[in-house]
Every structure is written in structure tokens, then in C-alpha cells.
Amino acid sequence: MATNEKPKKASVLSEDDANALVVEHQGWAESIARAVARAWNMDWRLDGLDGAAMEALIFCSRRFDPARGIPFRGYARKRIHEAATDAARKTKGWSRGVSNRASAEARAREVSAELYGVFPEIRDGFLPAQEGGSGDEQECRAAIRELLMGASIIASRQAVSTDPLPDELLDYRRMVSVMASLEPVHQWLLYRVYWDGISLRTVASEWETDGLNVMREHKVLLVFLQKSMALGKPTTIPKVRPGLKPIIQRFKQEGSKGPFSDVLAKPELEHNTST
């Protein structure tokens, strides 16, 4: 009789086995810390990335459940990478930039740090996935374009948040105007991802829809933005895919026209960008 059967308890490793995992993967965890340090032009030891990676490795070894069938590295890589980047962001040199070059580097770090939020698969060693997934050069280029477009939106948004130059304000206004031409649900998608820093997968679970709906829609929106920015005016407005139709109803009930339409309706931005 299995009526009072309790849910299976996670079968974590014994302390000895967990320690053995740590010893086995120490070099690999350090290489993650080194990769982060190399990318952000830091010292993986002096800046404490090694310690953060080790801590995350130990943490993962204690939580790892082999019964789930996920390889240890697949389970731990994202967490170790995240620990290393978090440690890097806490260092004194993170946002320091005296010369123009160093300042650009510091800004690039800020943009890249936010980009992890939009494309969390990067932490696992994957480019943003493309339809078909053949892994050829065209696919790589499409993924890189997606990253560049995402980075550009983040950079424009960050630029206006701190003492923007007139050119930066104009660029920002141009981008927001194009976004404001979109359907409210599309505006919210972009806003949640690039302004609130929420990943596409999290938006999908918030909206109680399949992750693919949101990922595909995001790609469509980036292509729309790319074409519209090239033309200098909005092109054909993308239709909302059927999978997102229930969300439209939700926004209609809330009476939202979309965050960018609302921003443009405010007189402050009009004033700031017209001067």
C-alpha cells in the first residue's frame, strides 16, 4: 500500500564524495574564474574571483544530487560563473575609469554584466540559441547580432541614466519612439527584459507561457528594431503571436498602452530630448 508514500528526499552525496568532487573539479572551477577575469581585464586571484569560484564549487558539491541525472559540470557551471562575476562586480576597480579608454572599458563591463541577465545561457557556454540549431557560422553570426542589439539597448538606457550627452538623449529618444510604436505586450516584453533586467525565461514564467513564445517574439522584435532604426521610422508592426494573446487581454484590462508610449506621453522626455 503506497497511500502514505512520502516524496523522495534528494539524495545528496556523502561528505567524502562531495569533497572528492571538489578536488576533481577545482581546476575547472578556477578556469571559469580565469575566463571571467580575462574578459573583464582583472586579476583572478587579486580580485578574489578564485575564492568565489571555490566557494560556489563547494556549495554545489554539497547540493548535487546525482539521481537527477544531470552531470555535475552542467549543474555547477552557471553557479560558479555567477559567483565569479558577482565577486568581480564587488571589487574596487569594477567601475573605475580615469582615462577615456578605461571609462569605456568600465561601461562595457556594466553592459556585459546586465547582458547575462537577458541571455543567461551564456554562463553555460552557449550562444543565444537560433532556430534550427545547426551551429554553423550563420547561426553564430545571428546569435552575435542578437547579443549586440541587446547590448546596444542596454548601453543606450544606461547612458541616459547618468548625465547624458545631447547625442545620447537623441539616440535614446529615437529608440524609445520606435519601441512605442509596438503593441503593448511587445513593449512590456522589451521593458521587462532591458529595463527591469529580467531574463526571457523569467518573463515567460511570469506570463505563464512557454519560453519559446517569448524567445521567438524577442527575436522578431529585435529584427523589427534593427529595420526600423535603419529606416529611421517604424516598419511594419509585428503581430502578436497566438501564444501571447492571453497576455494582451491582461494588459487591456489594466488599460496599459505600453511603458514606452507612456514615457513619450510625459512632457519631461519631450523637453529633455528637444533641447
Partner: peptide
């Protein structure tokens, strides 16, 4: 420059 560098950083870090 910032955008290009940011994407290079995120790819290199992985």
C-alpha cells in the same frame, strides 16, 4: 566601442 567590447567580454568570459 562600448557595445562591441561588452559583447566580446561576455563571450570571452564563457
Amino acid at each position: 566601442e562600448v557595445v562591441e567590447q561588452a559583447v566580446k567580454m561576455i563571450i570571452d568570459s564563457t
